[in-house]
Design a protein around this nucleic acid. Structure first.
Length: 254
DNA sequence: ATGGGCACCTGGCTGC
DNA sequence: TGCAGCCAGGTGCCCA
């Protein structure tokens, strides 16, 4: 997409997580794509006069295809390029978003308070200890708080806690410095491993080429309730925290 | 400031 | 075969 010009935005269904501004197609038509990048789970498409901020939510996907490709249910918008290609967004649950930022997207309200990227040096044991101090929220929910660290979703939170040997219900402020350091490394490792495996396909996730991710086979606890812990054979437990499923080994995680 | 719960929405699966 | 109930990869917002 880089260097191409936006020919049009075809907005079929503006009712996404936030209603897409009906003036957006007129705003971006004719602008050149200066860069395509990512911050947390937001995709940022920098144009001449501002940036598009996209999010896939739980069920969203983007495909680069020929604009003549027949529409499928939940194809909510097409970003047409002057090159003749088309970026098509599909999202059954409509938890995804399409926003416009006229200034620096880092200052956009949704991005301004985000925590560090987990694979950078800014995310380290000292940082995590400082943020966790005094916090009584469960460590699992703390790790999923995007103001603390971005990118750790429901699957990888459980997996990282397992790898670090930390009980998901322990108060964030009561996890020792050594264990927080182990958590930093566990988060880095699990995200790296998952990325190398192409992601985790639970049901229907596929990458831009249509390839599923193979990390599901390497999950230690997620969706393994009742099955033996791979390390100690104790049955994996399932609990609910903040309306989200959590999986852990009661023997390996303290 | 913090923590907890709800909201947004559709589809797929299970069990009766 | 139909249908109610439950669950799902995210995360902002409101209230106590």
């Amino acid at each position: 997409m880089r260097g191409r010009q936006v020919a049009a935005l075809l907005l079929r269904e503006p009712r996404l997580r936030w209603r897409v501004d009906p003036r957006l197609p007129a705003t971006i038509a004719g602008q050149r794509v200066r860069d395509v990048r990512r911050r947390a789970k937001y995709l940022i498409i920098d144009l001449d006069a501002g940036s598009l901020i996209l999010h896939l939510g739980m069920s969203g996907s983007l495909r680069m295809l020929d604009p003549a490709t027949p529409l499928e249910p939940h194809d909510h918008y097409d970003l047409l390029l002057e090159s003749g290609r088309c970026l098509r967004f599909n999202d059954p649950r409509r938890f995804g978003s399409l926003l416009w930022s006229a200034g620096d997207p880092a200052d956009h309200p949704l991005l301004a308070a985000l925590g560090p990227e987990p694979l950078t040096s800014a995310f380290n044991a000292d940082y995590l200890a400082r943020r966790a101090r005094g916090r009584r929220v469960a460590i699992k929910q703390f790790l999923m708080d995007q103001r603390v660290v971005v990118g750790v979703g429901n699957i990888y939170a459980s997996e990282a806690l397992y790898r670090a040997g930390v009980h998901p219900r322990r108060a964030a402020g009561r996890v020792s410095g050594a264990r927080l350091a182990a958590l930093v490394e566990a988060i880095r490792a699990v995200l790296g491993d998952a990325i190398r495996a192409g992601g985790t396909t639970l049901r229907d996730y596929v990458d831009a080429d249509g390839t599923p991710g193979y990390f599901r086979q390497r999950l230690y606890v997620y969706e393994r309730a009742g099955r033996p812990c791979r390390r100690c054979r104790t049955p994996v437990r399932h609990v609910v925290q903040g309306q989200r499923s959590t999986y852990y080994c009661p023997r390996c995680q303290r």
